[in-house]
Amino acid sequence: MTEVRLGTRRRALVPLAGGLAALIAMFQLVSSSALAVNFTTADQEFKLYSNYLQGAQAAGFLATNDASTGQDNGVAELGIRSAKLAGLCAIAHETVPVVGEVSLMILAGVPVKGSFANGSNTTADGAGNALTFDADGLLTGGNHITASNLFVNSRSLNGFGNLISGMNLGQSADTVDEKAGIAWPGGQAQPDPGDFGLTVDRLNVGGLGGDTYGINLQGAITLPNLKIKVVPGRKTQADCPTQAAG
């Protein structure tokens, strides 16, 4: 037979294996906080949970956010110059044809607790290990997520303030970024002079939960113990510890 067959040859395995090995290596680097990644979302609603947020130099104001549905939502824009998070559990829901509803879960750091029922249980993580603090009340121990210039716009944020100092409520919104030493990312809603704004020097919040539309990292984020999962069904915060363990 003198026919020429055209198709994918077996040598495809060479770049495939190389590429996947590089991807796994990068995943491991991200997971061991050696490599920082860029993570930006704007219009998808996320549920965001963390055992403990420790922020230094934060500023916030009220703004509107356009969702991909074309709907305008009132949100609080919060910018933190440097933040440390004890555990991260982000959940987004999506309806996929044929499969039905799936949940995308991004887990990093120590496991997040299944619920933050009251303020007293916010000093332990989802695996039951106590979070450790130094004499100044700052988080110690490894495996925490560190981010610089973290911007979150959320419809609701709740938690238990543990240690908050240097708070100024009602500052003119156009001056809060300068006070905190941050710059609002271009393209998002910018504050108007005279609007309500706030600044905080130290912001430590236990049991953080929020409905957020956007996470924007102008700086880099480290994500130790990173896990990305797509699981069928509608997952909630209660699934965070089990998904982080499995």
């Binding site: 495809a12 495939l16 995308l104």
Partner: peptide, 28 residues
Amino acid sequence: FVAANLGGYLVGSVLGILGGSMVWAWGE
């Protein structure tokens, strides 16, 4: 993977590596 939301939540990066390899290796 590094620059765009973990490569479209990982799926995009894996598909891109597979597709790129297959394009490269296509032939007689």
